[in-house]
């Protein structure tokens, strides 16, 4: 019995290797296939980055290295203005949607009340409604509000950064709720009982126990809201007004006309920012 044991484990190991898909044909083809998919995902991104340094003025051929496009980009007041607008909108949208979303998550996770299911639907609907529908609906809504304001006060308002921000908050809230609810679900409520038992009132329980422990979830939600706002194009296109353009809208307007390496450069920078945000969110998750 004891003598045969090593042989059994060896054969088990071989069988394990086969079933884990490495030594078999199916395993090999799966690996090759997956590598090809990763190439499919990354080759366009890499080419985009490379061609932000080409001298070619159409930005699609390699004709030598240059930093010119970046320099031009930073000297382009329109682009820089749009970038600034984007950051402002994303920051405000993140702060508001994180606060409102966290409060909603608390309410949904901690209370039973009439109309809770309806509320659940209202919160998750913005995730499944196509963005273009939300965009045209907000556009129509803002037009009506502006009409009303004009009739009442005589003041003529146009779509601006505020209208975009309101739209971004409206769809970001739902995503924040999803993320924060997950961390509230994982939160051990006995810790709150323990704190109460040790003399903490509900204020102290929340700020000293609950909040610090769900903070990673809240930050995760905030990062998601920030990215959603930075990346949003459709709602931004419909809700931003003349002169208050956002970066994705500016890029879209330029790209529709022609490819230029300047766009490659700004795209590269946006890519870098996204990567930094992914890295940050992963870092936070690991810390948890």
């Amino acid at each position: 019995m004891i003598k045969t044991a090593p042989a059994t484990t060896a054969s088990a190991r071989i069988r394990g290797a086969f079933s884990e898909g490495r030594l078999t044909w199916s395993g090999l083809s799966l690996t090759v296939f997956s590598i090809l998919v990763y190439l499919f995902l990354y080759v366009p991104i890499v080419i985009l980055v490379i061609f932000s340094f080409t001298r070619d003025e159409f930005g699609v051929r390699w004709t030598g290295f240059t930093f010119d496009w970046y320099i031009r980009l930073f000297n382009n007041p329109r682009m820089m203005g749009a970038a600034w607008n984007t950051l402002v909108v994303a920051t405000v949208s993140t702060i508001v949607s994180t606060i409102i979303g966290t409060m909603l998550a608390m309410a949904m996770e901690r209370y039973r009340f009439r109309g809770r299911n309806a509320m659940e639907g209202l919160i998750y609907l913005p995730i499944v409604v196509p963005e273009i529908v939300m965009a045209v609906a907000l556009l129509a809504f803002s037009a009506i509000i502006f009409d009303v304001i004009r009739m009442v006060t005589g003041e003529v308002l146009r779509r601006n950064l505020a209208t975009v921000t309101i739209g971004h908050i409206a769809f970001s809230i739902s995503f924040v709720v999803v993320v924060v609810r997950t961390s509230l679900k994982n939160f051990d409520r006995r810790l709150e009982e323990a704190a109460a038992d040790l003399g903490a009132d509900s204020w102290n329980i929340f700020w000293r126990i609950t909040f610090p422990l769900i903070l990673p979830g809240i930050i995760g939600g905030a990062l998601l809201a920030f990215t959603l706002s930075l990346d949003d194009f459709i709602i931004s296109l419909f809700l931003s007004g003349p002169g208050t353009s956002l970066l994705p809208v500016e890029v879209y307007n330029r790209v529709r006309r022609a490819i230029t390496p300047e766009i490659n450069a700004i795209s590269t920078l946006m890519l870098l920012l996204s990567m930094a945000l992914v890295a940050l969110s992963q870092l936070l998750q690991r810390r948890r």
Binding site: R190, L191, E193, D197, D201, I209, L213
Partner: peptide
Amino acid sequence: TPPHMRPVNTVFQSYALFPH
């Protein structure tokens, strides 16, 4: 009287130590 006003303390089954 809420828990935080009572003159008793509890040792919980899962200990409920504050992880942070």
